[in-house]
Design a protein around this nucleic acid. Sequence first.
DNA 1: CGCACCGGGTTCTGCCATCTGC
DNA 2: GCAGATGGCAGAACCCGGTGCG
Length: 386
Amino acid sequence: MAAVAGVKAFLSSYRSAALQRRFGHMPAQLTSTVPPRGLCSAPMKANEPKTPAPTENESLLENLNLMGVDVKMARQRQPGVLRKAFTNERGLAKFLQGKGASSTVVAGIVSRYPRAITRSIEHLEHRWELWRDIFETDAEIVSIVDRSPESFFRSSDNDNLKKNIAFLTSLGLNNKDLHRLLTTAPRTFSNSLELNRQMVEFLEDVCAELGGENPEQFPKSVISKNLYILIRSTKRVKTNIDILRAFLKLSDSELLGLLQGPVAQIIDLSNEYLKNNFKTLQQRLVSHGCRKSDLKKLVLRYPMVLYIGSDTLSSKLDCLLSGGIAMQQILEKPKVLDYSTQNITGRLEELHRVRYDFKKNGISVLDSSQKRFDAKMEKLRAGLDD
DNA sequence: CGCACCGGGTTCTGCCATCTGC
DNA sequence: GCAGATGGCAGAACCCGGTGCG
């Protein structure tokens, strides 16, 4: 059985290459009027219905079932794959298992990204090798592929992958950066080189337009601060930059400074989300008697406030305010918003128990690691006993 | 010593739409 | 017309500790 699958795999890659060669030079018009299928499949003769609903490959289905693949899911995701005559599911399984993937992992991968079984062994080996240039171990790669099969299998263009690695390196990203990038946002490496290049050029343009000194290093700095940037559209990033500018009335240099700092992390949020967060924040500030300039002050001081969803932000603010903290204090120490509502609630309770005076002592206690907070609480309790 | 400032680490896929080439 | 390749989108925080200063 395995041998048969191997032959199938061989035939698959051989045949498709042969077909490409064969039809590659055909004039476009001829190709569009005469379906290639009619030219090459001998068994399908005249009495076939015009468009026979292509049926699924029974032996493939059987194989997939044996492998534990969720065929229903696979059908829903990429129905065409199940109709293919030649596939490489056995080869793929053997390959991945050879890299340390369990059969469950393989099944999960094929269920979620069926097209994986159309890749030839040579292709898989080459691609794996390229990933191994960045990863230390096969196990790391297996875990990424398991997490995101699509990132590994969506493109069949190994050459493009190679070029991407070279391109990203040329930006000044070192191996450690690439490792983080491929771990965190593996899709980046399946982007076309052109798409990645567009984003990089876009970022360079932004920097230059804002009067930045060296636009060439700007993309690197943004990418290393926001590993997701390359899997976003330039349109999205551009719109967000415009939103920032509009809400805060920023000058070019202020904006540039922000973009080079922590704002890089929020620049890829969905446009509506960012806008919504801005609006909510603004409303809350206004309703507490803050001035327009306070919004700017807050965002400049703590840009990540925009990362917090409007519901979460509201509940955090409510929690702090009802705990006896003034909005002005939050504006001064916005990092308290960094902590979860649950964490804040818990700390407020503890502090109330020792009658902590926020007016007198400020709210910095809330903005500290658990360890430091606990140490602080120890002292406060000891002070109460005296 | 206690505190404030600051930066860093972790983190992200699975689906749909559109085009392209055979 | 089909499947493959590729682009794009929504979803949405939390925590830790080094260091330098008073």
